[in-house]
């Protein structure tokens, strides 16, 4: 058949692939790649120093910008503690409970309210 005569077989194509497996390398390519390899190569014995604990922490906090912000916030907080503005309550007194002005609530009222709601009884009689 005419169609068969024009058809290319798998074997013929495989022969072409086989011939194509070793393309001619451009002259000097190997040497250029080798030179680039030597130029980029670390020196013998040179190892990358592992990051110190502080550097790893700084990196985790967002680098030097993050650490700068953290230090500034710490200093500001310390200074506010040492010399608080007039309108702020005294931190020491607040901690000791003096003038804290909190009143205990009658817990029986709260408990009774809860029970009444939960049970759903005694409201309407």
């Amino acid at each position: 058949m005419t169609a068969d005569r024009h058809e290319m077989t798998d074997a013929a194509l495989d022969d072409l692939f086989q011939d194509a497996r070793a393309p001619q390398m451009p002259e000097g390519l190997m040497l250029r790649v080798l030179d680039a390899g030597f130029a980029a190569q670390p020196a013998p014995g040179a190892t990358r120093a592992p990051l110190s604990r502080w550097r790893r922490l700084a990196a985790a906090m967002g680098g030097w910008q993050g650490m700068g912000g953290l230090v500034a916030a710490t200093c500001a907080g310390f200074w506010i503690g040492v010399s608080p503005p007039q309108y702020l309550p005294d931190a020491a007194l607040s901690l000791l409970g003096a003038g804290a002005g909190f009143e205990t609530t009658d817990m029986t009222e709260v408990a009774a309210y809860g029970w009444v709601v939960d049970e759903g009884s005694d409201i309407d009689g």
Binding site: M30, G37, Q41, P42, G45, A46
Partner: peptide
């Protein structure tokens, strides 16, 4: 690690 023979072989 700086081994020149490895550079040649890989190339």
């Amino acid at each position: 690690r700086g081994d020149a023979s490895a550079t040649r072989t890989l190339t």
